[in-house]
């Protein structure tokens, strides 16, 4: 076993609607290894299996075959809520990552207790509020003075930034970002990406970030993978990745898949 590996996906297969006319092989024997500290951006066309891969890692459902090894531990059969201890997740839908009817501080307090046994101790302590204030002020969104405001009143960008903070709490072994800026306007998306970059670097988090924006995929992280039909078809890292252009990527895709890149929302230029 590779000691420097944070994540190993071994031959992951996931079919949806198996045995019916709508059968869809979402992940087709997927293999992927992430080294500790890797920041990998993920691109791919519609139905390439990007989100399915993240859900397989997070344990939203069981995979049909293959194994998920996280930091040397086989978590293939661990239920979603138990894996959560090791994972930080941010979703595409800004509504999905936070509890809208609970206060900002209550959401943070839940994240601060991720993977811990819950007791009848207070759901939030006074001392925590000081920490949360500091964390929020670093975001620069003015949330530090609104600790007891319900999250539902925040904008999409503020909610994604908050979800990022929550995801990075408890030192996750892996950060999973599922097109977390796709629902935001370009300016807000850029802000959230800046915050992402800072949080990943400060905590030295191993990260998988799906994006529909090829420029973002090239600009961020140390490694880029492209998925197609449930597998990784392009894997570029280091210096080679830094020199990439969108045209290179499209050309690589044509060679690897024998077809044109298609993604409704892909931003190519």
């Amino acid at each position: 076993m590779d000691n420097n590996a944070m994540l190993q996906l071994n031959g992951i297969v996931k079919k949806f609607n198996a045995g019916t006319i709508n059968e869809k092989i979402a992940l087709n024997g997927l293999n992927l290894t992430l080294d500790k500290g890797d920041f990998v951006t993920v691109i791919g066309g519609n139905g390439a299996g990007k989100s399915t891969m993240l859900n397989a890692i997070a344990g939203v459902w069981r995979v049909d075959s293959g194994s998920v090894i996280l930091d040397g531990v086989d978590i293939t059969n661990l239920p979603e809520y138990k894996r959560a201890k090791y994972l930080g997740r941010v979703f595409q839908d800004p509504m999905m990552g936070t509890a809208a009817d609970m206060q900002i501080e209550e959401n943070l307090a839940l994240a601060a207790r991720r993977g811990k046994r819950k007791t009848l101790a207070p759901g939030i302590r006074k001392s925590e509020r000081v920490t949360y204030k500091e964390m929020l002020s670093e975001l620069g969104l003015g949330l530090e003075s609104r600790l007891s405001v319900k999250v539902g009143t925040l904008s999409g960008g503020q909610r994604q930034a908050l979800t990022l903070l929550m995801a990075a709490m408890r030192e996750p072994k892996l950060l999973l970002l599922d097109e977390h800026t796709a629902a935001l306007d370009p300016k807000t998306a850029a802000t959230v990406l800046d915050i992402t970059e800072r949080i990943v670097n400060e905590n030295n988090l191993t990260t998988l970030m799906i994006t529909h924006n090829m420029h973002d995929a090239i600009a961020h992280g140390n490694r880029l993978i492209m998925m197609h039909e449930g597998n990784v078809i392009i894997d570029v890292r280091g210096e080679e990745k830094k020199k990439l252009t969108v045209e290179d990527l499209l050309e690589m895709f044509r060679k690897a898949s024998g077809g044109e890149f298609s993604n409704d929302r892909a931003i190519l230029s």
Binding site: M96, A99, M102, L110, T119, L120, A121, G123
Partner: peptide
């Protein structure tokens, strides 16, 4: 309490609750 908060979170957003362990 911590347990009470997890019940409220479950009713409010079950996907988020699972993601938060």
């Amino acid at each position: 309490t911590e347990i009470g908060c997890t019940i409220r979170a479950t009713g409010n957003n079950i996907a988020m609750s699972r993601a938060q362990g």
